[in-house]
Amino acid sequence: MHHTIPVCILILIVFIVLSAPANSAKIGDSYPITLPSLFDSKKNISSNDFKEKVLYVDFWASWCIPCRKSLPQLNELRERLKRNGKDFEILAINLDSDPNEAIAFLNKYPVDYPVVYDAEGKYPKLYGVKGMPTSYILDLQGKIRYVHSGFRSSDIKKIEALVHEMLP
């Protein structure tokens, strides 16, 4: 009976160790991304290709319901900012287990920005993605300046304001 408390403490410690939080990217961190294009696995796209631009890194999947709203609205935002001469780009990282599902989604909701495919889920782990969709706004130096989880239509205005703030 007198062993009960130490045994409970031991079990508690095991649970705490097992449930330790995973790595999570912080504001100011820089994690360059290099992944194959969703449409051409032989072509690599890197976040370093957009270093002189504010980069919106968007983690998404075809089964993510808010992504049906976010992708078309982000595409519109990109077009609008481009028309105004703003150095802004979006890099969408698809996390579907089957890339064909992502391609079918993009046929329905087409976008003009680059879409890469992370088959092993390396980058969401590195960035500490906690829900779908999650996005990170990287500044001109490639450092994370803003983390955004989920998506509502009203978020576009906030994102636009942040991009304007970050650009000279």
């Binding site: 999947a61 075809s62 287990s97 089957d98 599902e101 993605v129």
Partner: peptide, 23 residues
Amino acid sequence: ILLSLSGLTGCASVEPWEKGMLA
């Protein structure tokens, strides 16, 4: 208790981006 603890090694958390099947 030992067998139960050894079973914990089989526990794996489903990451948010791995929920395609569940969705």
